[in-house]
Design a protein around this nucleic acid. Structure first.
Length: 379
RNA sequence: GGAGGGGUGGCCGAGCGGUCAAUGGCAGCAGACUGUAAAUCUGCCGGACUUUGUCCUACGAAGGUUCAAAUCCUUCCCCCUCCA
C-alpha cells in the first residue's frame, strides 16, 4: 500500500486521466512539471508558475546540495517554505548529472564523485546520500538515484548501466524514509533495448515504488525510437501507479507519450527556450529574435491568456529580447509555461471526453500548418 | 609654430612586403536547445557567379618602389596628444 494515493478517473485507449494525492496537494495528470533546478523556475515567481496551471515543480539534488546545501534548506524549513512553493515538489536525484556532467565525475559501484561545476571541489553522491538530501529538502516525490544512460550506447553498455541503476534503486528504496503523502519513484533504464527495459521494470516492481519513471530517453535517439521504446515498455509498467517520462519534451513528444500512457512529464524546454527567444505556439515554434517581428503590432497568440500575449505586441517582445531585458525572459518563459500547461489541460479534457486521438490529430495538423500569422489579428 | 601618434570591412580593433577579402569583439542574419554547468551554444556576415572554386571591388586620396603592398617611399587631405 503506497502512501501516495493515485486515482485514475478516465481512460482513453492506453491514456489515463488521474489525480495523484500528496502531502502538499493533488496533482492532475497527465501533468507537466516545470523545472526549477536551483529552487526557482528561472525568470518566474512562484505565483506566476501557479498561474500557468502547474500543480508541481521539479528541483535538483545535485545543484541544491552544492548551493545552498541540503542541511541549510532543512534548517530553513524545507524547500517548500524556502522557495515559497507550498505545493508538491519532485526532486531529481542527481542521476541526470551523472550523464550531463560526465567530464566532471567519477563513477563506481558505491556512487558518483562530482567535481563541482561551481568551484571544482569534490562531492560524493551515493544512493543513500541522494535520498537523504531529498529528504532534507522535504521533496514530496523523491527520485531513486540512477545513471541516466547516455546515447548512443551499445546494448552491453546499456545493460551494465541499467543493472547498476537497479542496484542503486534497491539501496534508494532502503534509504527512503516513508511519510504519509510522500513517495519514492523508481527509474526504468535500458536505453532503447526492449529486453533491458523489461528486465529493469521487473527489478523495480520487485523492489516496489510509489511511481515508476522512464529515464534515459530524449537524450538524442529521436522521437521515432523514443516512441518505439515506449510502445514496448509501457505495457509492462504497473498500471495502478503514476508513470513519469523524465525530461520530455517537445509538445509533440508529450502528446504521443500521453497517448502511450504516460502521466507525468518534466522538461527544461519551455523555460530554457523562453530565455533563448523561442516561443511555443499552437502553430509550432516562433523565434521572437527574428527581424520579421520588429514592426509587428499584433499579439504573439491572440487566443493565449498569458500576459505576454494579452498585454504586449510581437514587436515589443522582440525589442525586449534584442535589448536583453529581463522582462523579455520573464514574458517568454511565462508564455511557454502557459502553453505547456494549456496543452496538458487540453490532453486531460480530451481523455475525459474520450477524444484523445482526435485531439492529437488536430494538434498535429495545427503544428504542421506552421503559420504563426494565423495566431494573431491586428489588435 | 614645434614634436609625435594615427586614419583598416556598419562600429570598435588586430595585422605591418607574399600563406590577407584581411584575427578578435560588437552590431546584424539565421539555426539549435528534451530528469538545466545554458539570459547558452552553433553557423553566416564586401559583391557577383556554375558558391569546398572563380572573378571583381577593397585597408583616407593620388602617385611610386617591387615579381608581389593594408604593410615600404613621396605628396596631399583629415583626426588626436604634448610643447610653445
Amino acid at each position: 500500500m503506497s502512501s501516495l494515493r493515485f486515482d485514475i478517473s478516465h481512460r482513453d485507449g492506453t491514456a489515463r486521466r488521474g489525480l495523484l494525492h500528496t502531502a502538499h496537494g493533488a496533482i492532475n495528470t497527465p501533468a507537466f512539471m516545470p523545472v526549477g533546478t536551483a529552487a526557482t523556475v528561472k525568470a518566474m515567481t512562484p505565483e506566476a508558475v501557479r498561474d500557468t496551471g502547474a500543480d508541481i515543480v521539479l528541483a535538483n539534488t545535485y545543484h541544491l546540495m552544492l548551493r545552498p546545501g541540503a542541511e541549510r534548506v532543512a534548517r530553513l524549513g524545507g524547500l517548500h517554505r524556502f522557495m515559497n512553493w507550498p505545493r508538491p515538489i519532485l526532486t531529481d536525484s542527481g542521476g541526470y548529472q551523472v550523464m550531463s556532467l560526465a567530464k566532471l565525475r567519477k563513477l563506481d559501484e558505491t556512487g558518483v564523485t562530482f567535481r563541482s561545476h561551481l568551484d571544482g571541489t569534490a562531492h560524493q553522491l551515493t544512493p543513500e546520500r541522494s535520498i537523504e538530501i531529498q529528504n532534507l529538502l522535504d521533496a514530496t516525490i523523491t527520485m531513486a538515484f540512477d545513471e541516466c544512460t547516455a546515447w548512443p550506447v551499445t546494448e552491453a553498455e546499456a545493460a551494465k548501466s541499467m543493472r547498476l541503476s537497479m542496484r542503486w534503486a534497491d539501496r534508494s528504496r532502503r534509504a527512503f524514509v516513508e511519510r504519509d503523502g510522500y513517495g519514492l519513484f523508481g527509474i526504468v533504464q535500458g536505453s532503447v533495448f526492449p529486453e533491458l527495459r523489461a528486465e529493469s521494470i521487473a527489478a523495480l516492481t520487485g523492489i516496489g515504488f510509489d511511481g515508476y519513471a522512464i529515464g534515459g530517453l530524449a537524450v538524442g535517439e529521436g522521437q521515432e525510437l523514443m516512441f518505439a521504446t515506449l510502445d514496448t515498455t509501457m505495457p509492462l509498467m504497473p498500471a495502478d501507479r503514476p508513470r513519469y517520462l523524465m525530461g520530455v519534451g517537445k509538445p509533440a513528444d508529450i502528446v504521443g507519450a500521453v497517448q502511450r500512457g504516460i502521466d507525468m512529464f518534466d522538461c527544461v524546454l519551455p523555460t530554457r527556450s523562453g530565455r533563448t527567444a523561442q516561443a511555443f505556439t499552437r502553430r509550432g515554434t516562433v523565434n521572437l529574435r527574428n527581424a520579421r517581428h520588429q514592426d509587428d503590432p499584433r499579439p504573439l497568440d491572440e487566443a493565449c491568456r498569458c500576459p505576454a500575449c494579452r498585454d504586449y505586441s510581437r514587436a515589443y517582445l522582440h525589442h525586449l529580447i534584442r535589448s536583453e531585458e529581463v522582462l523579455g525572459l520573464m514574458l517568454l518563459t511565462r508564455h511557454n509555461l502557459t502553453y505547456y500547461q494549456e496543452l496538458m489541460a487540453g490532453l486531460r479534457g480530451a481523455i475525459e471526453a474520450g477524444t484523445l486521438d482526435a485531439f492529437a490529430a488536430a494538434f498535429a495538423a495545427e503544428q504542421a500548418a506552421g503559420d504563426i500569422d494565423a495566431l494573431a489579428t491586428e489588435a
